[in-house]
Design a protein around this nucleic acid. Structure first.
Length: 986
RNA sequence: GCGCGCGUGGCGGAAUUGGCAGACGCGCUGGAUUUAGGUUCCAGUGCCUUCGGGUGUGCGGGUUCGAGUCCCGCCGCGCGCACCA
């Protein structure tokens, strides 16, 4: 700072101002949003405010490394949006909590012996300090962490609610739709009085079953249940993982350890019951189309038909019996072209399909398997093939080259439409986890089946032909064999008739409909919907997570703890880590840390179920990290409520359905309710958002919330990438030690390095801390810079040296109000001239639109332009500067508050006013009319903004350049008064 | 392979319905202030130019009086899914 400008807005001054205002905001509770009901009820304050607005960010995991400048990008954006609306009098709720259970804290605890709660809480304190220093207007009363007992009590309560429910697909909801979660007690009552029978009863009456038998039946319907099922066991981590936590390479997302398929008893969530609603209701929310597509793909709903292929069992106790192999197909119209079948290696019928003894006569050599030693009998060949497949996980199978492998089972099934005997193969390109684990293979209509048929010499029958212009099958189409590829497009059915039905000549869609009806009629099949979505593996062999509110009695029956026993708190354990094994030790068993605390595990309780005190064993798994983040947005609404997750009045007020559907929703849809604006990274587009939606819908069905979706509007923010540098060996080097040379190249300690842009973090050694930015520029400058970088949804590179531009803007803003030498306010009360008035109102109108649409970068550009215009004046008009300060406030709130106060206003500006633009005051004395000749700009002329079309045409045609260009006559003249005239010469 | 998105100065990016391409910022150039420095100020800055002008939004075509914007075909980059029957 030079001596003659002691009152310049420098980083030092910015810091003083910022810290002072942060203190004032905290003291006055400036950002506390009143609730209509519940423990914090302030209905009068709610009444006095405008419409509510709930703005939330995906909450952070408090890492030990602290924040980097990428983290706050979304928080600043939501803060700007919140402040903008708060200034217009709305009741804005914006706050932030912490997702604090999870592996990093546990692993750190394992290394240091410190309790994960200690390190987590320390990290939260650091992060809270950093966030406060950014000037984020959070309602700090509503912040909490998922590890708080007051919070996870309710996470456990929700788990219990889910477990004590089942999905009744026939239940008629209030909206007329079918299917809802209902209390399991309803099912139990219906089973007991015989009004409902289920296949699990196997024909027995409820009263004939013992406790264990009944529990088993109910467990088959609960929305949270235990299951002995193939799971992803990761010995290196000592825990099981959900499918989502396993990479395409068949390794753990975290740690990159091998993952094996193992049958283990685990907790599951029946999310598949909601597959349809989760897919359908995407129409009702305002989310990026890309994210909706990702969720739809994940759910993977496909409609088709199930078809039953008769087969005679070849061996086992049922040898000679008629069975059916049921398949799922999306192309029932191609059934006449099914020339063979394939079942997954794990398919339950495989063993019974293999004939004793040798191969059927005439079995081609290549059908007998690649393992020459095992190809002597079907039994040996299939067993060898199945063993090889079992050693590979699903993901590993997919990894290998797409070359088809498989073995003939030795059995033939009957094509139900042609009556043809078609061979049944075992091949690992069919997955047990999808559909029925068996397919009908139509080589002419499916690329995979085609490849298999070519490799194994199987017949190909064309059943769909491309359609000609007349809509009929192309006459001289040479067929798929000639083409060397299956025909999978739309077309016309051919070769598809028997004595009872003909599809020939029908388009694919019509043929599907016709054949499905026929199959149904004959009992051969039925229209079916299948999903890619699997039930959600919900247990982990971890310490640092929510304990399950579950105990097992001496019969092994699981019981939910009554609400009065919640929270079930995490006990201290001698060792925080699960037992880990050699990463390759597939046969190892999980041993969760909680199992090492026998006095916690083995308890005597009275569950209040009439059985009195009984001995129980607690569940020793813990919930996955997703649990806490599945519903945290609800708790913000009423965090002090000890009677309910949220008071129903508060829930309706903040997230209840609105009268109008969201923008862009199909006609007839209703608003589902939910958070008004949810901002976060697209990496959570599938899992977090899907799980939260699932839980929310269960809570809706059970009547705990009025909203049907958690997040009405979701905005996927981009990332900030920072430069990272590699040396000659390709190793990342500390970015802070790199300097740019005069020629634009980069060096570190004199050695050349090469630059790339990537995710900020330890691994790329390119950490940029907000702490450094506050110190060098102040929080307001950082906010302006981050919001000015470009569109929020886009990823863009960080450039520290460009931050100064934002400081310069704030400096000029400051200078337009405050004299840098004297510190005196220098605005004058003169009325601004017409040109400046026009610019002011145009700016207000534009900035409001930009804020509303979250185009903060263009809002900032407009503010800079207006400010630069004032900078050119010797005396800044008060009216303009006041409006400018108010408009800048959402983005740079500290400097705005300071200038607003120095301009003589008391009481702060967080509740407004926000300037209102008047379109009537946007008047130009003259506008530049562009004169084009054949579409190219050739001339310009200043004209009155309300010039008539005719006089403008006349004026333009008289211009010298136009006359010169139109010497040969004029073909046409397009006039768009007052801004453009286009003259087209003959 | 399938699906989606995006290609604009040296860089980040503007351009609301087809109507002055490059707003705003960085960088760069020149100047001012300063003992000096720059986190100061002012001016200039797409490219080419014989200073008349020409040319320009990945490439090629089309529609239009007029295309960054709409249509078709390529090329490149990014993201998602990936034997899902």
């Amino acid at each position: 700072m030079s001596d003659d400008t002691p009152h310049r807005y420098t980083a030092q001054l910015a810091q003083q101002i910022e810290v002072a205002w942060q203190d004032r905001w905290e003291e006055s509770g400036a950002f506390r949003a009143p609730n209509p009901a519940g423990p914090w009820a302030e209905p009068a304050q709610v009444q006095a405010l405008g419409p509510k607005l709930l703005v939330l960010d995906m909450f952070p995991y408090p890492s030990g490394a602290g924040l980097h400048i990428g983290h706050p990008l979304g928080y600043i954006a939501t803060d700007v949006y919140s402040r903008f609306h708060r200034m217009q009098g709305r009741n804005v709720l914006h706050t932030l909590g912490y997702d604090a259970f999870g592996l990093p804290a546990e692993q750190y605890a394992v290394q240091t012996g410190q309790h994960p709660r200690k390190t987590t809480e320390d990290n939260i304190a650091i992060m809270a300090r950093q966030l406060r220093r950014l000037g984020l207007g959070f309602d700090e009363r509503r912040s909490y962490a998922t590890i708080d007992e007051d919070y996870y009590r309710w996470t456990q309560w929700i788990f219990t609610q889910i477990r004590e429910s089942w999905y009744d697909p026939a239940f008629v909801r209030a909206d007329g739709g079918l299917g809802a979660a209902r209390p399991i007690a309803e099912l139990e009552a219906a089973l007991a009085d015989g009004t409902r029978a289920v296949p699990e009863l196997a024909g027995h009456a409820w009263s004939e079953l013992d406790r264990v038998g009944r529990a088993k039946v109910l467990d088959a319907y609960r929305l949270a249940y235990t299951s002995e099922a193939p799971v992803n066991w990761c010995p290196g981590l000592g825990t099981v993982l959900s499918n989502e936590e396993v990479t395409n390479e068949g390794r753990s997302e975290r740690g990159n350890f091998p993952v094996f398929r193992r049958n283990l008893r685990q907790w599951m969530m029946r999310i598949t019951a909601y597959a349809d609603r989760l897919a359908d209701d995407l129409d009702r929310v305002e989310w990026p189309e890309k994210v909706k597509i990702m969720q739809r793909n994940w759910i993977g709903r496909s409609t088709g038909a199930s078809v039953r292929f008769p087969v005679t069992l070849a061996s086992g106790s049922r040898a000679g019996a008629e069975e059916v192999i049921e398949v799922f197909t999306t192309r029932p119209d191609t059934l006449f072209g099914a020339t063979f079948m394939v079942v997954a290696p794990e398919h339950p019928l495989v063993a019974e399909l293999i004939p004793a003894g040798g191969w059927p006569e005439g079995t081609p050599e290549e059908w007998k398997g690649a393992d020459a030693a095992a190809s002597g009998t079907p039994e040996a060949a299939v067993t060898a093939y199945r063993r090889a497949a079992s050693r590979k996980s699903d993901v590993e199978r997919q990894m290998e080259e797409k070359d088809k492998t498989g073995v003939f089972t030795g059995s033939f099934a009957t094509n139900p439409l042609t009556g043809a005997q078609i061979p049944v193969f075992v091949a690992d390109y069919v997955l047990m986890g999808y559909g029925t684990g068996a397919i009908m293979a139509v080589p002419s209509g499916d690329e995979r089946d085609y490849a298999y048929a070519v490799k194994f010499g199987l017949p190909v029958i064309d059943v769909v032909s491309p359609a000609g212009p007349d809509g009929a099958a192309v006459q001289d189409w040479p067929g798929t064999v000639a083409a060397g590829a299956a025909f999978t497009g739309d077309g016309v059915a051919i070769n598809s008739a028997n004595a009872d039905i003909s599809l020939d000549g029908l388009r694919v869609a019509d043929a599907k409909e016709r054949v499905t009806a026929y199959l149904q009629e004959r009992g051969i099949g039925a229209g079916t919907v299948t999903y890619r979505l699997r039930d959600w593996l919900f247990s982990r062999q971890r310490y640092w997570g929510e304990p399950f509110p579950i105990v097992f009695d001496t019969d092994g029956i699981a019981h939910s703890l009554p609400d009065s026993m919640l929270p079930l708190t995490l006990p201290d354990v001698p060792d925080y880590s699960p037992k880990t094994y050699d990463p390759e030790d597939a046969g190892s068993e999980p041993e969760p840390p909680l199992s090492r605390v026998p006095e916690w595990v083995n308890v005597e309780l009275d569950l209040g179920d009439g059985r009195g005190m009984q001995a129980y064993r607690r569940e020793t798994n813990t919930m996955p990290n997703w649990a806490g983040s599945c519903w945290y947005y609800l708790r913000y609404l009423d965090p002090a409520n000890s009677d309910a997750i949220v008071d129903p009045v508060n829930e309706r007020y903040w997230v209840g359905p609105q009268p109008n559907p969201v923008a862009g929703a199909p006609a007839g849809t209703r608003d589902p309710g939910g958070v008004d604006l949810y901002v976060g990274g697209v990496e959570h587009a599938v899992l977090h958002l899907l799980y939260a939606r699932f839980w929310h819908k269960v809570l809706f069905d059970l009547g705990h919330v009025s909203s049907e979706e958690p997040f009405r509007t979701y905005f996927a923010q981009g990332y900030i990438q920072a430069p990272a540098y590699t040396d000659s060996r390709g190793q990342y080097v500390e970015a802070k030690e790199v300097v740019e040379e005069a020629d634009g190249s980069f060096t570190r300690h004199g050695q050349p390095v090469s630059r790339e842009f990537g995710k900020i973090g330890k691994s790329l050694k390119n950490m940029v801390s907000p702490d450094d930015m506050y110190a060098a520029y102040g929080a307001d400058t950082l906010r302006v810079y981050e919001m000015g970088m470009g569109p929020l949804e886009q990823s863009k590179p960080w450039e520290t040296r460009a931050v100064v531009g934002s400081l310069r803007f704030l400096q000029r803003l400051w200078r337009n109000v405050i004299d840098e030498s004297t510190g005196q306010v220098r605005v004058v009360d003169e009325v601004p001239d017409q040109a400046l008035t026009t610019m002011l109102h145009r700016t207000i109108l534009g900035v409001r639109e930009d804020y509303e649409a979250m185009r903060f970068n263009t809002a900032i550009a407009k503010l800079i332009e207006l400010n630069n215009a004032v900078t050119k004046l010797s005396a800044p008009p008060r009216a303009v500067m006041q409006a400018l300060v108010l408009m800048t406030a959402p983005i740079a709130p500290h400097i705005a508050e300071e200038l607003w106060a120095r301009l003589g206003h008391s009481g702060g500006l967080s509740t407004g006013p926000f300037p209102v633009g008047d379109p009537a005051l946007v008047v130009e004395e003259s506008v530049t009319c562009v004169i084009q000749i054949k579409g190219k700009v050739r001339d310009r002329v200043e004209v009155s903004p309300d010039i008539s079309e005719d006089s403008l045409r006349e004026l333009v045609l008289a211009r010298e350049k136009v006359r010169a260009a139109t010497a040969d006559g004029i073909r046409t003249v397009i006039v768009r008064a007052p801004r453009l005239v286009n003259v087209v010469p003959a």
